[in-house]
């Protein structure tokens, strides 16, 4: 049995009267690549944001290595430095170059030396093919390039888990491939990943486990070979048929 990194127990989230997540129970083992799929508004992104504590859950608990994540800013900061996040809108820091973006977290959060931070940044930027652009500002890059830098920036923190919130949804089709390839390579290195995506082929081929969410519930949680070929839940079937037909 692999080591359990994150476990979520009875997680609920409401915005006012609107219940977005209802009693979610998920646990994440080391090395798993989990894809979360489902229609818009099903709560996928909110779940991911709750895991990173960008949203505070209304009810339920999140454990990291068996320890509950409490409402203490210092503990949250430390937890976040180990659970990285890649956003749909990239969120690269506009006041910094590509290199500075990648050195920001290692310098300001992990307090690495300049040389160490630089070496780490370059090695991860090389991995995503963005090392030649270290002097560029985010505004000078294309969407696909920005997202690859954002992935490198997250990797610089040496995260235990990396969360991806629809990383390719804001990209044009030509660039989606580049980003997905980078993610595929990451999956092969054994990094634990949780990916919210609409790329069904990617989810089917890369994930070790696929979660289908519907109306704030986890409707189905199975191996991709199971979920994509023989879905148990009628909602999953309906959703997939629409996707695979289109």
């Amino acid at each position: 049995m692999a080591e359990k990194i994150i476990s979520i127990e009875g997680l609920s989230k409401s915005f006012g009267d609107h219940e977005v997540l209802r009693k979610i129970d998920i646990s994440v083992q080391k090395g798993e690549v989990i894809c979360i799929v489902g229609s818009s508004g099903s709560g996928k992104s909110t779940l991911l944001r709750c895991i990173n504590r960008l949203e505070r859950q209304t009810n339920g608990k999140i454990f990291y290595h068996g320890k509950e994540i409490r409402d203490v800013q210092r503990e949250i900061n430390e937890y976040r430095s180990k659970v990285g996040m890649v956003f749909q809108s990239f969120n690269l820091f506009n006041n910094m170059t590509v290199l500075e973006n990648c050195m920001c977290g290692t310098r300001k959060v992990l307090h690495l030396s300049k040389e160490e931070a630089f070496d780490r940044a370059i090695s991860h930027l090389k991995k995503v093919g963005m090392a030649p652009y270290i002097n560029a500002k985010p505004s000078q890059l294309s969407g696909g390039q920005k997202q690859r830098v954002a992935i490198a920036r997250a990797l610089c923190m040496n995260p235990e888990v990396l969360l991806f919130d629809e990383p390719t949804s804001a990209l044009d089709p030509e660039m989606v491939g580049d980003v997905l390839n980078v993610m595929k390579e990451l999956a092969q290195t054994g990094l634990t990943m949780i990916i919210v995506t609409h790329e069904m082929a990617f989810a089917r081929d890369v994930s070790t486990r696929t979660i289908f969410m519907d109306k704030g519930y986890v409707a189905e949680d199975a191996a991709p070979s199971e979920l994509f070929t023989n879905p148990k839940n009628p909602r999953t079937r309906e959703f997939l048929s629409r996707y695979l037909a289109g």
Partner: peptide
């Protein structure tokens, strides 16, 4: 300043104070 700038910094473990001084205020 776009909320994403703040979230990007918080998500990597930066404290709200550091986020303000290194990311938000310069912009």
């Amino acid at each position: 300043i776009d909320i994403g700038q703040r979230e990007g910094a918080l998500a990597m473990g930066m404290s709200p104070m550091k986020t303000m001084f290194h990311i938000i205020l310069p912009q």
